[in-house]
Amino acid sequence: MIRTLMKTLLLCLCVFATPALAVAPDEILDDPALETRARTLSAGLRCMVCQNQSIDDSDAPLAKDLRVLVRERLVAGDSNEEVIDYLVSRYGEFVLLKPRFAWHTLMLWAAGPLALIAGLIAIFLALRRKRRGGASVEENVPLSEDEQRKLRGILKSGADI
């Protein structure tokens, strides 16, 4: 009895754990090749409402409109690149989940590798400092006679505290 219940629960979890695609049946194209191209394109396009979801995964009305627009353009005979260019001209490059590599996006593409390099350099310098004993050069300089005399005076006056 418990085993059957566990199997049923596991089956339910597996069914509900699949990603929910928002593509409605009325949006699906009859031509499987065009539908595959539409799914590929819509997986790389950002939902302007959800912002971190593709239009393929979003239930927002604007995402539905974009999915329909992509399919209309493909049926009209546009290539994948023409569809992307059309959407970028209307909505800007923000509509792309993966921005294009260009001069105005160079910092965006370079930020990750630069942060990684800076982190590695910081780790290297910290390890090198630790191997040296962690003390700076100034800490190893002995006190002068005048400094030792002042220190003794401070310690004597602090003994009463």
Rank of each mutant, 00 (worst) to 15 (best):
residue 32 P to L: 10
residue 76 A to D: 00
residue 43 A to M: 11
residue 161 I to L: 13
residue 58 S to E: 07
residue 69 L to K: 13
residue 154 I to Q: 15
residue 9 L to V: 13
residue 160 D to H: 07
residue 71 R to L: 04
residue 44 G to E: 14
residue 24 A to Q: 12
residue 150 K to A: 15
residue 30 D to Q: 14
residue 96 L to H: 05
residue 157 S to R: 12
residue 4 T to C: 12
residue 23 V to Q: 09
residue 1 M to C: 05
residue 117 I to T: 07
residue 46 R to F: 00
residue 82 E to Y: 00
residue 150 K to M: 01
residue 3 R to K: 13
residue 42 S to P: 08
residue 74 L to I: 02
residue 89 S to W: 00
residue 91 Y to E: 08
residue 151 L to Y: 09
residue 102 A to C: 03
residue 12 C to G: 14
residue 77 G to H: 01
residue 23 V to T: 11
residue 14 C to S: 05
residue 110 A to F: 09
residue 154 I to E: 11
residue 8 T to N: 09
residue 153 G to N: 05
residue 152 R to G: 14
residue 67 R to A: 00
residue 68 V to Q: 01
residue 87 L to I: 00
residue 95 V to K: 04
residue 115 A to L: 13
residue 32 P to Y: 10
residue 104 H to S: 14
residue 115 A to R: 13
residue 158 G to N: 08
residue 80 N to A: 15
residue 93 E to R: 08
residue 107 M to G: 08
residue 124 F to P: 03
residue 87 L to Q: 03
residue 44 G to I: 00
residue 159 A to M: 13
residue 106 L to C: 10
residue 65 D to H: 10
residue 3 R to V: 06
residue 15 V to H: 06
residue 13 L to N: 15
residue 61 P to G: 11
residue 66 L to H: 00
residue 140 N to R: 14
residue 48 M to I: 08
residue 32 P to W: 06
residue 92 G to H: 05
residue 98 K to D: 06
residue 101 F to Q: 11
residue 71 R to W: 04
residue 19 P to G: 02
residue 107 M to C: 10
residue 114 L to W: 02
residue 91 Y to I: 05
residue 126 A to S: 12
residue 49 V to W: 02
residue 85 D to T: 03
residue 104 H to G: 04
residue 61 P to T: 01
residue 102 A to Y: 03
residue 133 G to N: 09
residue 147 E to V: 07
residue 128 R to M: 13
residue 122 A to K: 14
residue 79 S to L: 07
residue 120 L to V: 09
residue 100 R to L: 08
residue 25 P to L: 15
residue 110 A to D: 10
residue 111 A to G: 08
residue 41 L to Q: 01
residue 9 L to C: 12
residue 12 C to F: 12
residue 87 L to P: 01
residue 148 Q to H: 02
residue 5 L to H: 03
residue 161 I to N: 10
residue 83 V to Y: 09
residue 160 D to P: 05
residue 100 R to E: 14
residue 94 F to G: 11
residue 128 R to D: 15
residue 73 R to P: 04
residue 62 L to C: 09
residue 100 R to M: 09
residue 73 R to L: 07
residue 133 G to D: 05
residue 4 T to R: 15
residue 40 T to H: 06
residue 154 I to M: 11
residue 149 R to T: 02
residue 155 L to P: 03
residue 103 W to P: 02
residue 50 C to Y: 09
residue 128 R to E: 12
residue 4 T to H: 12
residue 97 L to W: 00
residue 158 G to P: 04
residue 3 R to E: 12
residue 158 G to C: 11
residue 82 E to K: 11
